[in-house]
Design a protein around this nucleic acid. Structure first.
Lengths: 228, 228
DNA sequence: CGAAAAGCAAGAGCACTGCTCTCGTTGTGG
DNA sequence: CCACAACGAGAGCAGTGCTCTTGCTTTTCG
């Protein structure tokens, strides 16, 4: 039994080692991850890697899930240190941005354009919503504390109904516009970071990009109804 | 001389044909464009394609420039039909979104995560700013017509200075915050479309995505100071 | 007008990729 | 102890980007 545990542990270690090397390759060479190159770095035959990951896509999926978890973890920790909802909002935003700047290629993997031919499997859905849920919880807290004012821009028919449904399902007791504000805020976050990382800000915002991001997050917070 | 023109014309036609087939491959197979597959579709040797494009990256660059121009053209035309600044703002937004929905892979090429190993050359910079400049012109028009109010969220030090500089360079006579509103609006646009195209809205906004986008564009306009 | 030069297409070839299959080896549970 | 499952390595297939050489056509110029 201890032997079996040893075998399983070796396998787990090997799996982790492959992922680590793959992450390193991702950081240097970009998204076209070469399984053979990873195998070379590990001084093993490329075919041996297939004992641990059935395909390159499966390895990518593992990295994606890890990335979702890592950025979610960072955001949650940062938000936990905020005193007011607005402080949590901003802290979470900066935490996500910092993580993205540290791991640009992993960010591209999870929030960039889909990898050609890669279809995200179902088990990436749950970790993907971690940051979104954090923002939602922050706004919900603000709402219950009376620190959230309904924004002036109203939603149109179809989308408004959808928000009401979502609210009823995931946040009972919360009006639909809070869910709408959450989604808007989340995509503001992604958009601001992606535009910075993917080069859309080149020749427009070349200096104080943290300032730009702060400005965007404050605007998003304001648009969401956060005051303070 | 006419013979020389004929030769040049044949070459131009061939170049265009390669791009057309490449675009078709892009639309079906995604971003990992295979030069050999394109050559096969054209019933020519893969090496022959290199007479027209020195590398796969150069072909991608040509497609990128075309895409920038195409989406810019559509946005400008749509904005031209708008009566008020806000109408132009919304029309341009929907035009860009419509184009993106029609050409998702080309959108990913220009506004998605950078293609691995591909570095955008300098000659893509000018066409890339076309939509940004359109938004800027729209806001400038609104400003001069007294239909733009300075937003309450103020910019912080470093970023504010940068905006003032940008305004002095590109939009003399305009305050920095209008430039800031332009940039914010542009990345709002990109973010909203990308989040829809790249699947970030899955399981959040599955129904009325046009309504979602409209809501976002109105919010961005409001954040930029557009009234009406 | 004919020779030189330039443009072009094709094929072979190199190094690389993901992935599969087979073949020994090695460790494990009954 | 031994059958069996897990494992690593190697060969091999089909595909990729790209280069180089070879032959052919078209243009250009003396």
């Amino acid at each position: 039994m201890s032997a079996a545990n040893l075998r399983a542990r070796v396998r787990a270690e090997m799996t982790e080692e492959i992922k680590t090397v793959a992450r390193r390759h991702l950081a240097t060479d970009g998204a076209n991850l070469s399984l053979r190159a990873v195998a070379r770095d590990l001084a093993m035959a490329s075919s041996a890697v297939y004992r641990y990951f059935a395909s390159r896509d499966e390895l990518l999926t593992a990295l994606i899930i890890d990335a979702y978890d890592a950025v979610g973890e960072r955001a949650e920790q940062a938000a936990g240190r905020g005193a007011t909802p607005l402080a949590k909002w901003l802290a979470a935003g900066h935490a996500v941005r910092d993580w993205a700047l540290e791991h640009p290629h992993e960010w591209a993997l999870i929030y960039g354009s889909p990898v050609p031919g890669y279809q995200a499997p179902q088990n990436t859905v749950v970790p993907a919503t971690r940051v979104l849920l954090l923002l939602g919880a922050t706004l919900a807290e603000a709402y219950h504390a009376g620190q959230l004012t309904e924004p002036a821009t109203t939603t149109t028919g179809g989308y408004a109904d959808e928000l009401t449904e979502l609210a009823a399902t995931y946040y009972p007791g919360l009006p639909g516009w809070v869910v709408g504000a959450t989604i808007s805020g989340f995509f503001h976050l992604c958009g601001a970071i992606s535009s910075e990382l993917f080069g859309q800000l080149n020749h427009s915002v070349d200096g104080d990009r943290r300032g730009f991001f702060e400005f965007q997050m404050r605007g998003a917070g304001r648009l969401a109804g956060l005051v303070g």
